[in-house]
Amino acid sequence: MNWFTKTFSSTVGRKIVMSVTGLFLCSFLVVHLLGNLQLFRNDGGEAFNLYSDFMAHNGLIRTMEWVLLAGFAFHIYDALVLTRRNQAARPIPYQNNHPEENSSWASRNMGLLGTVILVFLIIHLYNFLIPARFDGLDPVNIDDVEYENLYAEVVYAFKQWWYVLIYVLGMIALAYHLIHGFQSAFQTLGLNHKKYTPFIQMFGYAFSVIVCLAFAAIPLYFFFFV
């Protein structure tokens, strides 16, 4: 191994990869959410369809998709490697264990939460990205130009209660994942300071709750109000 691979295959190095990719994925959430807010415009999906068309054809965005994919891949790969290592580090479990006395549930169940999010993600991609990219959607005309009507797809999906439920559950899992993960990423990068850490923790909490609430509001909005 050279110094580079050695660095990033050590336990500390892998966690650094997880924190950097995790924070990057957080930034993606923000961009994704801002775009999705178009769904709340009461314009029959016009703005949203324009936005999705832009996302599908802009070169920079398409490139970033690959970076995003790599981010997910590294985040998940290192999570798997570390989880296996951590399980091997305690081959015989305690017969009586009370971890709730010393740590939060979310922090101890990041793997479980991550898996739920991954399952959600697959469903989500199957719902929207795959049809949009590969299958072709119904056309819709906006200012005499033909676009694919992803909005209709959204409306259709979120009229079904089990989809709404899956999405809401996915967002709850994400919220808990982020509540621990956001501030944890800073700790992993060594950013722990008496002045700034309380702010990071507060911000991370607010970020997790607000972002996930906003995402969860979309299916609920369509189910109940559209």
């Binding site: 050590s10 951590n86 091997a88 006395e101 010393n102 740590s103 922090s107 990041m110 944890s184």
Partner: peptide, 20 residues
């Protein structure tokens, strides 16, 4: 850190139970 890894300890996930 290298020796810590060789010994087979797990990886920190910032749970905080150690300090608690």
């Amino acid at each position: 850190v290298a020796q810590m890894d060789i010994e087979g300890f797990g990886s920190c996930t910032n749970i905080g139970s150690c300090a608690a």
